[in-house]
């Protein structure tokens, strides 16, 4: 079954510039509204600065975790190699217990 994607999950959708983000407005601008525009741009700048800082922190956390995973993988691979290759249980027949049936001849 295919899940329906929300509008926000579609890749690249956020890159389309909207009327607001492109700075255009259908209403005729008056001189006095420049203060309002300035306020709105400042608010958006603050929001985006915060978002960029959060992404930077997340990126650092991901890089730290990747380093940990890499170190752990190397350690495990070394120990697996030291133990020698394990034979597949179904191919070569490991030691296992059998029920024995004595037969006297």
């Amino acid at each position: 079954m295919t899940a329906t994607k929300g509008a926000t999950e579609i890749k690249g959708l956020r890159d389309i510039r909207s009327m607001r983000s492109s700075g255009r407005c259908p209403i005729l601008r008056l001189q006095s509204s420049a203060y309002l525009t300035l306020y709105m741009l400042r608010a958006e700048k603050e929001r985006l600065d915060k978002e960029a800082a959060a992404l930077k922190r997340r990126r650092q956390a991901i890089e730290r975790r990747l380093e940990e995973i890499q170190a752990q993988m190397q350690r495990l691979e070394r120990s697996v190699r030291a133990e020698g290759p394990k034979e597949s249980s179904t191919r070569t027949g490991p030691e296992r217990t059998w029920r024995t049936f004595s037969l006297r001849y």
Partner: peptide, 17 residues
């Protein structure tokens, strides 16, 4: 999924063999 029989025979001579 594979299973297999688990009983094997252990032959041995009778005392008067």
């Amino acid at each position: 999924m594979i299973e297999e029989l688990t009983t094997v025979i252990k032959p041995g001579p009778v005392p008067d063999f």
